[in-house]
Design a binder for these strands. Structure first.
Lengths: 217, 217
DNA sequence: CCATCTTTGTGCACGCGTTCACAAAGACAT
DNA sequence: ATGTCTTTGTGAACGCGTGCACAAAGATGG
């Protein structure tokens, strides 16, 4: 039986082993003292708790470059997501297959949502169309929306929205880049930014809190 | 002179006003007591500190759907980013304009980086090519990399990498969706997940910590 | 069956960030 | 000028998450 210790996992993930064990303990006592965690069982338990074992049908609205990129993205299927439909407002796109799935017209949006029991929608339209698409998705029964359009969507209570801004990550890199460049002239700067200085040596690859939280619109 | 108070900004951003004032104070004392902050001056100071006033030439490597979507993304220019070049390994793409910029071949990668003084690279290639492209970018002088390929890149010290996984946000939505669905049957579940339960009512649209940190690969 | 060794699960303490609360500062009216 | 009123900037307290350290649990070998 293949096992891992919290120590091994912690080293691989770059976190403290005690924190990892405490996190796991919230899911239950799945480890064996003196041995570690049964890999297969642990993966299953975490997957289940995270909802990876379920089948999540999603629709992608707006099949431009980004929508097509998402439709072709291989990482969805392995995480339980199934692209149930692609929807675009351009009649010329209708019927054209993208990633093996024929694009359908916006007119049929409500029917598509209901027929497939979709509760998660992805918006990859231009900014101008996003709110309108969002409203229709919500009215049709969608309760979670992933928004790639550069607009803040307003939704009724009970609907989750997550906004993905592709330039934010780039901005974080630029922020660190600026720090690197200004390091030799650090003392010459008018003010120091403690939070940023502390994060100077961060070597992770994740979207974690290593940049000030407040930004201008 | 248009001004805003910390109270107004805090309400708009959904944070505590004291925290906002303290954050601003790290940048200097830009407010006026009894009045608030001069909007224009404040925006400038924050922009400067964040590096938005600088010109950041970036290259995008891998001009598939995603690369094209990034090249067309309007949000870059306004944040100080300038797409200096598009690079692809496919000779058939060479010369073809995407978003008004002619695609160049990978062979010229080093020269392009050096001629344009590029320090930030975006990788939108298939997973198999990512590490190789990364190595060449780093060797050519790039010190910050935004990675859209589903691979963890290894880089020497001093190089920043940020990995963007388009399915993670979707997974967070699915996690909350599962919670919503299981809410009526909450007591029937074998275990509760305190962190998730606490985040139940979160209504923000940002990638903040409202989901467990550790995940299986 | 007992001893030893490994690794988990967790109480406890420390440290950091958030929030409270207030004095200082400045605008504005009289 | 002087007083009042608003809002900043920040010292201090609070709360939460992280990390330490160890007892309990179980495997493994003699």
């Amino acid at each position: 039986m293949p096992t891992v210790s919290s120590e091994e996992l912690a080293a691989a993930a770059g976190v403290n082993s005690a924190k990892l064990r405490k996190d796991f303990s919230y899911l239950g006592s799945y480890g064996t003292r003196g041995v570690g965690y049964d890999v297969e069982y642990l993966v299953y338990q975490i997957s289940r708790e995270l909802g990876l074992t379920q089948d999540w049908p999603v629709v992608i609205v707006g099949i431009g470059n980004l929508g097509a990129a998402l439709a072709n993205y291989g990482g969805f299927a392995s995480r339980g997501f199934r692209v149930a439909a692609l929807i675009d407002a351009d009649p010329a796109m209708a019927g054209k297959p993208v990633a093996g799935i024929p694009v359908q017209h916006t007119d049929d949006l409500e029917k598509i949502i209901q027929d497939n029991g979709v509760s998660i929608g992805v918006i990859a339209t231009p900014a101008g169309a996003a709110q309108q698409v969002c409203d229709r998705l919500v009215a049709a029964g969608v309760t979670s929306i992933l928004n790639f359009a550069p607009t803040v969507l307003s939704v009724p209570d009970g609907v989750d929205v997550r906004k993905v801004d592709l330039s934010i990550e780039l901005q974080i890199l630029a922020f660190h880049e600026q720090r690197k460049a200004g390091e030799e002239a650090m003392e010459a700067l008018p003010d120091g930014l403690p939070a940023a200085a502390a994060a100077k040596g961060s070597a992770d690859q994740g979207p974690d809190g290593d940049v000030p939280a407040v930004m201008p619109a």
